[in-house]
């Protein structure tokens, strides 16, 4: 026996172009009718063409780059590129790959809690007219707009020259953490502001305190937005070269400790191509870099869908 809903669904699935009685749908005009309509409003047609064109240009550029990278890089994706140790024969990208994960991961571990906590303070503990909040927000906005090379020089003077006496992963990690901190803070702040006050009121009215309301109601509701910010931050670290060349250096190996120097994938690509001898391998590295970003994006999408499904 079929369930009632299945029968109903089947009964009301209309054929694509006409209803059950064979009449055409009157609210879905044909293309010719639509064009006739546009004849009366030619400017609308121009605007329509422009917005479609803009969307196409954007998509086409992305596609062009990806396809170009794949065409150039795919033939050069040899197994030797993925050997664990780098030498001048195999030109392995694996040390750089691991360094990338270490630097990005640790920078996020440092910057995300601070950024989220700062955003919680700004949105949940202060009123919008507060002078101090205005100063913090302006500082964050300014920091977010500073070119990354400035962070690089700053990191070099503070971490490389003064603190750790040499290029090191930890110098790169701390520099990256400082660089993405305002980004994480701003995106989290926006996500928190998007949580309706009625959720907070509902929680307070049940006798929940401020902390419980923040952790059980506000942060979970804002989670998709927060995760989106974390992805952006990850992407910035993975794509960073200038600031890292001055801090974590260009050694093609995974160092024994965080105090050793090591390069990331983006820098690996830069050195390979700038030396001019191994441009093919640089293209292959680009594929891996793009894949890494795609995988992280996908994983984040998955996590954030999990959250959304729960609600």
């Amino acid at each position: 026996m079929r369930s009632a809903t299945a029968v109903i669904k089947q009964k009301f699935t209309p054929p694509p172009s006409c209803d059950l009685k064979g009449r055409p749908f009157v609210n879905k005009p044909s293309l010719r009718k639509k064009l006739a309509e546009y004849k009366r409003h030619p400017f609308s047609l121009v605007m329509l063409a422009l917005v479609i064109l803009s969307a196409l240009i954007t998509a086409a550029i992305v596609l062009w780059i990806v396809i170009h990278v794949i065409i150039q890089g795919a033939p050069n994706l040899k197994a030797s590129l993925f050997e664990l140790e780098y030498d001048s024969e195999n030109l392995s990208l694996m040390p750089a790959f691991f360094n990338t994960l270490i630097i990005a991961g640790m920078a996020l571990i440092i910057a995300v809690p601070i950024g989220v906590a700062a955003a919680v303070f700004l949105t949940e503990y202060t009123s919008s007219t507060n002078k101090f909040v205005a100063v913090v927000r302006m500082a964050a906005e300014t920091l977010a707009g500073i070119p990354s090379i400035v962070y690089g020089i700053f990191g070099m003077i503070l971490f490389v020259e003064m603190l750790f006496k040499g290029f090191s992963l930890i110098a790169g990690i701390l520099t990256m953490a400082i660089m993405i901190l305002p980004l994480v803070m701003r995106t989290t702040e926006e996500a928190l502001r998007a949580v309706p006050d009625t959720f907070r009121e509902g929680s307070f009215a049940l006798g929940a305190g401020k902390l419980r309301t923040i952790f059980r109601v506000v942060l979970p509701s804002a989670m998709p937005g927060i995760i989106a910010g974390v992805i952006l931050a990850f992407g910035r670290v993975v794509g960073e070269t200038a600031a890292l060349i001055y801090t974590s250096g260009t050694v093609k190996a995974v160092p024994d400790s965080l105090l050793g120097s090591g390069e990331t994938l983006a820098i690996h690509m830069y050195t390979l191509s700038s030396e001019g001898l191994h441009v093919n391998e640089a293209w292959a590295t680009a594929i891996v870099l793009i894949l890494l970003v795609l995988v992280i994006n996908g994983a984040a999408e998955f996590v954030s869908n999990k959250f959304r499904k729960k609600y």
Binding site: T198, G202, F204, A205, L206, G207, P220, S221, K310
Partner: peptide
């Protein structure tokens, strides 16, 4: 918080949390 436990409130617009 104990006061609000004893004195519950229902709001003008239904405001369930975005959970089950």
């Amino acid at each position: 918080n104990l006061l609000r436990k004893r004195v519950g409130m229902v709001f003008q617009k239904p405001n369930p949390f975005p959970s089950s």
